[in-house]
Design a binder for these strands. Structure first.
Lengths: 170, 170
DNA sequence: TATTGTTATACTCTATAACTATA
DNA sequence: TATAGTTATAGAGTATAACAATA
């Protein structure tokens, strides 16, 4: 998902109106279209500036951050929080563990469960990435929206999906 | 799961709060997170009610709609409009053509190009899907936001990505 | 030389189903 | 029986690189 299209639109071989005035039809009135394009644009911007050092994806950082905010949670809980099947989490956990950012620790209450915990290195990396993601999103957003508009947008999106953060108050 | 018999199993680790109060940490302040969750939620809602009859995806409908709004455009133009590589479009076009919704017609100006055009059936299907997508998005949105808030949201997202519709005025 | 469509290939993300070990 | 983690597998969706035909 590199999406590094910073390249030029080289075709200058025609006269005046080069860019084909393609119409999006009804897509301009479909929220799903705008959501997808916006999500892609933000992810591409952040990935282009965060990835080089850490080779991390937004999804992988999301998992790391949720583990950091809920140390000791089980993989099933993480999957539920991320809105994916528990089988889809395994490889992500594998990657984070292979980088020594997290550990699967045994639970003594229930020997089926793995308690997901950050390593000291994981805590440091997570803290660094957290600032990186916040900072780079800010760069992207500040070029396009006012601070107030960003707040409005966040609030509307939060109401759109149900995955708000009831425990974020703590 | 209808948890009718609470007395038996419910006491282990399900004492007071049934849903694990997982915190999302900083994700709640990251627009990328909210965009992804919202996009997934809208797509799932629409897919669940549009798909059964037509077996179409938002992406496939998007391609169909752009072709409908720009009949005769080339595959490269469609790819550019959709924001993907031209090689990624081929299979989508194949599918739409296999369902007899569109045709690849030869261009007499440039024999490398294929002019993408809808069949009569494609025009009918596109019109039907267009209403379906609009209607089902409306169902989803009306349960969550006011009409004014939807307008605000659309406007903000449109400014977030650059893929606005300059020709949508027509 | 550059562009269009195409193919081969690979990689990511995701889901389903089945397995195991626990509970 | 039900749950937690895992594996195998499959299917979208995307990208890169190379190719033939054409410009």
């Amino acid at each position: 998902m590199a999406d590094a299209r910073v390249g030029r639109l080289a075709s200058q071989h025609r006269d005046a109106a080069e860019p084909p005035p393609v119409s999006y039809g009804v897509l301009g009135r479909l929220l799903g279209f705008h959501l997808r394009r916006s999500q892609t644009a933000v992810a591409a911007h952040v990935m282009d500036r965060v990835n080089p050092e850490d080779a991390i994806t937004p999804g992988l950082f999301g998992a790391l951050e949720v583990i950091a905010a809920n140390e000791g949670l089980a993989q099933s809980d993480l999957a539920k929080a991320m809105g994916v099947d528990r089988s889809s989490i395994v490889k992500a956990i594998d990657q984070l563990e292979a980088r020594s950012l997290i550990q699967r620790l045994p639970s003594d209450r229930d020997r089926r469960r793995h308690r997901l915990c950050l390593t000291p290195a994981g805590r440091a990396t997570c803290a660094r990435l957290r600032e990186r993601f916040l900072a780079q999103e800010a760069v992207f957003l500040q070029a396009r929206l006012s601070a107030e508009e960003v707040e409005t947008l966040m609030g509307l999106l939060e109401r759109l999906h149900g995955a708000a953060d009831p425990a974020c108050l703590a």
